[in-house]
Amino acid sequence: MDTPLISLAGLKKYYPSGDGRSLVLNHIDLDIARASMTVIRGISGSGKTTLLNILGGLDRGDEGRVRVGDALLDSMDFAALTRFRAERVGFIFQFHNLIPTLTVKENVLTGLEPIRTVTAQDHRRAEEYLHKVGLLEHAEKFPAKLSGGQQQRVAIARALIKEPQLILADEPTGSLDEDTGMRVFELLRQMQEEKQVTVVIVTHNPALGQHADQVYEMRSGHLHRAAQ
């Protein structure tokens, strides 16, 4: 049996609360297979974004083990976590965080800048990924000229250009209307299958779990397997 890409064991996370602390993630055990799509649903404040941030090395747990591939995140220092995020993880957020003074293609290329100097070959790769997300004809436009759904597709191309092991998406359709949101989700699924990348999406939208490989519910810091 293949080793899971992600393996969590006994993960706990506390945040300060009043005179003490509150338990945000309560003993999370989770395995996620390579080249799969996982959806984690939950209301605001349930802990799902905290979990995603820990998977991406943006935050640390207080107890337990976090492994992504061969990286043991809970034992890595700041510099190692920074390299891990730059080289292995593509992030997609609800608000796509495009740089307004850069063209669409230049925004896609920013996905590579933490890793290496951008080359002429990388420009061709950016165009390839813009073609995959249906935006090649907009490569020289600025983000303000695009719709919200188009901007989110640029963010997907930016996450994919470095061909990461893992894509983490935090409410990637939350700022879009229902039809556009489902098209963005279907594009993520298509890219996951074509590139064999592992995708983890956190969302409050129950519809996004219909075509995922596995769905979980986050409730008050506990993670439960959910029906799809």
Rank of each mutant, 00 (worst) to 15 (best):
M1V: 11
T3D: 13
P16V: 08
P16W: 15
G18C: 06
L25W: 04
H27P: 05
D29H: 07
D31F: 08
I32T: 12
A33D: 15
R34A: 10
S36M: 08
M37R: 07
T38L: 13
V39W: 06
G45D: 15
T49R: 11
T50G: 12
N53K: 09
L55M: 13
G56K: 14
R60F: 11
D62V: 15
V66E: 02
V68W: 05
D70I: 06
D74V: 10
S75R: 09
M76D: 03
F78R: 08
A79D: 10
L81C: 05
T82A: 11
F84T: 06
A86F: 07
A86L: 10
E87Y: 05
R88F: 09
F91V: 05
I92E: 04
H96F: 12
H96I: 06
I99V: 13
P100T: 02
L102H: 00
K105H: 00
K105G: 00
E106A: 00
E106G: 00
V108T: 01
L109I: 00
T110S: 06
L112A: 01
T119H: 01
H123Y: 07
H123E: 04
E128D: 08
E128N: 01
P143I: 01
L146Q: 04
G148N: 12
G149A: 05
Q151L: 04
R153T: 00
R158F: 03
I161C: 06
K162V: 02
K162A: 02
E163G: 03
E163F: 00
L166V: 07
D170V: 10
G174L: 10
D179R: 08
T180Y: 03
T180L: 13
R183K: 09
E186V: 06
L187W: 03
Q190T: 14
Q192T: 07
E194Y: 09
E194V: 11
K195P: 01
Q196M: 15
V200S: 12
V200T: 15
V202M: 14
V202F: 12
N205M: 08
Q210N: 09
D213R: 13
Y216C: 09
S220R: 10
